Simulated assay, not measured.
Amino acid sequence: MTVLIAFATVEGQTAKIANFINDITTAAGYTANLINTDALTGQVSLDSIDQVILLAPVHQRRHPKSFEAFVSSHKEALAAVKSLVLSVSLKAAFASGQEEAWDYLTEMLLRTNLKPDASALVAGAVRPESYDYFDKEIIQHVVLLGQKVNPKDGTQEFTDWDALQSTVMGFLDGSDVTNTDLSQISR
């Protein structure tokens, strides 16, 4: 069985998650094709693909344009295969941000007209070394407002790797993972 893992990344956490998914998919005996939508220059054939895992981060309330363009331009082929969409964000790391994180995912699905078989929120990371002044202010005073996380403490991952692995393997094996919450904080 062949699984396409298509992702976009901004700061690198989603690329790390995509590579993790690639590794566990391959270790489970699947053939995995990993593509970064930021690097695509044309259409991708989905003819030999059995399942698709799509993942992208949320920045400034949206998923990357390259990711949404990929999903929109391949929507018919994606509708023909089983699909899982993972939305990666800091909002997903905190109970107070869950509703907003689901809104980001829902809005992206509406814009792209994608109807995945399953979807999940994945908590991202704080990577202050990749932020400019404006990004640092937004992260600290908007995204992390009210949280006990200080970007000045350096990189902090919130991705729950065990839950992510369970969700991906459940999806690949045919278990129901619709609307899974993978946002538990794991350090």
Rank of each mutant, 00 (worst) to 15 (best):
A28I: 06
Y131W: 09
P57W: 09
L164T: 07
T106C: 09
G174K: 02
P151S: 14
S45G: 03
H74M: 06
D162C: 07
E100W: 09
L145F: 12
S186C: 11
T31A: 14
H141E: 12
S83G: 08
S83R: 04
K115A: 13
T159F: 03
Q156G: 06
F94H: 02
L4I: 12
G154Q: 07
N19S: 15
D181F: 08
F70K: 00
T159D: 05
S48G: 11
F67R: 00
P64L: 08
T25G: 11
L110T: 11
V142E: 09
R62E: 09
K136E: 08
N33C: 04
A120Y: 00
L121H: 03
R62K: 15
D181V: 06
N19I: 13
A69C: 11
K91H: 07
D47S: 14
K75G: 06
D23G: 01
L145D: 12
D132E: 10
N19F: 11
Q98S: 08
A27W: 08
L46D: 04
V81N: 12
S166C: 07
A27C: 13
G29L: 10
T2F: 04
N113G: 14
L164R: 08
A80G: 07
A163R: 05
D135R: 07
H59P: 10
K148L: 11
L34S: 03
E157Q: 13
V44R: 03
F94I: 00
F94T: 00
K115G: 10
A125C: 11
Q43L: 13
V142H: 12
I21D: 00
T167M: 04
K16A: 14
E100Y: 10
G146T: 02
E129S: 08
F134M: 12
L109K: 07
F134P: 01
T178P: 00
E11W: 01
T26V: 13
V44L: 09
T9G: 03
D173Q: 14
N36Y: 01
L84V: 11
A39Y: 07
F7T: 01
V3L: 06
E129M: 05
F158H: 03
R111T: 03
K152L: 12
N22M: 11
F7K: 08
H59C: 07
K115E: 15
H63L: 13
A120D: 01
S166L: 08
W161D: 01
D117V: 02
V122Q: 07
Q51F: 04
G12H: 05
D50P: 03
S130L: 12
R62S: 11
E129H: 10
E11Q: 11
R62V: 05
D176C: 13
A80L: 12
Q156S: 11
T37I: 02
N36E: 07
L4P: 02
V85L: 09
A92H: 01
S186Q: 14
K82I: 09
G170D: 05
D103P: 04
T106K: 13
G146E: 10
H63I: 05
H74G: 04
I5S: 00
A95H: 12
D103W: 13
A28M: 06
